[in-house]
Write a protein that binds this DNA or RNA. Structure first.
Length: 473
RNA sequence: GUCCCCAUCGUCUAGUGGCCUAGGACGCUGGCCUCUCACGCCGGUAACGGGGGUUCGACUCCCCCUGGGGACGCCA
């Protein structure tokens, strides 16, 4: 039997990091076993469903490389089928009409809570044959078995047993005639041939009810894997309402999709001491059965570290598109792609995010730098640097070829002439070129910046020092 | 409140009765490398929540407590 799994978000907002983890685990496990992933939008609550949310979910999954093999399917479009099944249950006396009003149910739950019981429907309409009045609104409830228990072997949780008398008769069809989630899920999972349901542990309590429905309909029950939840730094479940942001915001912040996936896969799963995984490695190694049962807390530092490794391991051209975007965000447009591509390798092991990379390489693309960082200027732009800097500038001006080798030779000659250490010369040059005290190797920096810009910035640096020496005289 | 789940360094985890003087990773930190930053390398910091059992022997098994989380909707 080939594996068929589904990711089934409700379209009430963007895809957040917790949902992404569920989608990832579905994807990885299914890839490992060569199955099919299905995306199904659970939009049975029409009031809360938004079409923008569907777009956002699709976009988030696409960015992460988790595009489904099938779908998106929309649960609402199978509404007729769901109601048909409800009718069938009604006819087979596995469901009944319940005329209880909202107020009545609230009162019942309040009493139960006050009595120290778990609030749940007491089944008072089970034996009612007539409506309280002609045309009274009703819901259809599932007539669950009240004795025995539901048992299943969860791929993550192990054996789970729930006594049927702990459950209540769940609503299958609302009083407005629309099917509810629990009915729709069961019918759709069956119709779509889903044989493994991977979802968050917050669905654990729905599972026995759904299994009862499968059994009442004499359908095969899928297997289940309930993943531990992802928590925020306060230790509580991460959700749209509670601290979680769209996965796409990670793109905005300069994270790579593979890094986000890599980070998420290590929450609850491990493979020896390995921390860095490519998508291919994750797909071949991951198995949902190896996932642990305890919840994890989202930690941005670890994500940053993993991202830095994925940036280092990426072919430069794969970073280009997002990098161009990040450069635009800081006002640098019309970037020469060839030039950018040649610069990227120098920044890959210096950047934890693409945002950081864009900031660090900005000096290469600006026409001019208009200021030196005060601390860098104070520390390195000293008057004593004026003579060697002047000489270096002069010699570079007369150096017609602009290669790493020739630049290095000019440096060596100046250092020899002044009998000085590299650091004393490189730092003032670095500040003159970049306005900061940090950059790639100084030869590489000069080379990447190019002859014209390098010389004009060096000249500006010399001028700066000359003015400084005059003002202090 | 009721039912369920979880419990190893601050965080992510390894550990499945003796290999544990509890391993790795992030973070923090000392050093090396060095033209700066970073990468890399070497070192340090830091954990089995508590109490009972079981056993020759418990991080590992059982029970209780404590702590944390989840679920209790005509939401999904």
């Amino acid at each position: 039997m080939t594996l068929r799994t589904r990711f089934a978000p409700s379209p009430t907002g963007f895809l957040h990091i917790g949902g992404a983890r569920t989608a990832l685990f579905c994807h990885l496990h299914t890839r490992h076993y060569g199955g099919t992933t299905i995306l199904r939008i659970e939009d049975t609550d029409r009031e809360r469903s938004k079409s923008e949310a569907v777009e956002a979910i699709l976009a988030g999954m696409h960015w992460l490389g988790l595009d489904p093999d099938e779908g998106p399917y929309f649960q609402s479009s199978h509404c007729e089928k769901h109601l048909e099944i409800a009718e069938q249950l009604l006819i087979g006396e596995r469901a009944y009409r319940c005329y209880c009003t909202k107020e009545e149910l609230d009162e019942m739950r309040d009493k139960q809570r006050a009595a120290g019981l778990k609030p749940r429907y007491d089944g008072r309409c089970r034996n009612r044959s007539e409506p309280p009045q002609e045309g009274a609104p009703f819901v259809i409830r599932f007539l669950r078995p009240t004795t025995g228990e539901v048992v299943w072997e969860d791929k993550i949780q192990g054996e789970v047993r729930v006594r049927n008398d702990e459950l209540d008769d769940l609503i299958l069809v609302r009083s407005d005639g629309s099917p509810t989630y629990n009915l729709s899920v069961v019918v759709d999972d069956h119709d779509m041939g889903i044989n493994l349901v991977i979802r968050g542990e917050d669905h654990l309590s729905n599972t026995p009810r759904q299994i009862q429905l499968f059994e009442a309909l004499a359908w095969d029950v899928p297997e289940y894997a309930h993943m531990p939840l992802l928590h925020g730094s306060d230790g509580a479940k991460l959700s749209k309402r509670h601290g979680a942001v769209s996965v796409l915001s990670f793109r905005e912040e300069g994270f790579l999709p593979s890094a986000v996936n890599n980070y998420l896969v290590r929450l609850g799963w491990s493979h020896g001491d390995q921390e860095i995984f490519t998508m291919q490695e994750m797909e071949s190694l991951f198995d949902i059965c190896e996932v642990g049962r305890s919840a994890a807390i989202f930690n941005n530092d670890k994500l940053l570290w993993i991202n830095s490794h994925h940036i280092m391991d990426s072919p430069p051209e794969e970073l280009l598109e997002d990098l161009l975007y990040q450069l635009e965000q800081i006002g640098i447009e019309n970037v020469d792609k060839v030039k950018l591509l040649s610069a990227v390798p120098e920044f890959q092991e210096r950047s934890k995010t693409l945002v950081e990379m864009a900031q660090k390489m900005a000096f290469l693309f600006l026409d001019d730098i208009d200021y030196y960082e005060p601390t860098a200027a104070k520390k390195y732009m000293k008057i004593s640097a004026l003579p060697p800097l002047t000489e270096l500038t002069r010699r570079l001006e007369s150096n017609n070829e602009w290669t790493l080798e020739s630049i290095e030779k000019v440096f060596a000659s100046v250092l020899a002439a002044f009998e000085m250490k590299m650091g004393k010369l490189a730092q003032p040059v670095r500040v003159a070129l970049t306005g900061t005290a940090t950059s790639p190797g100084i030869y590489e920096t000069l080379y990447l910046l190019g002859r014209t810009k390098s010389l004009s910035r060096l000249q500006a640096g010399v001028l700066y020092l000359e003015e400084k020496s005059q003002s202090t005289d």
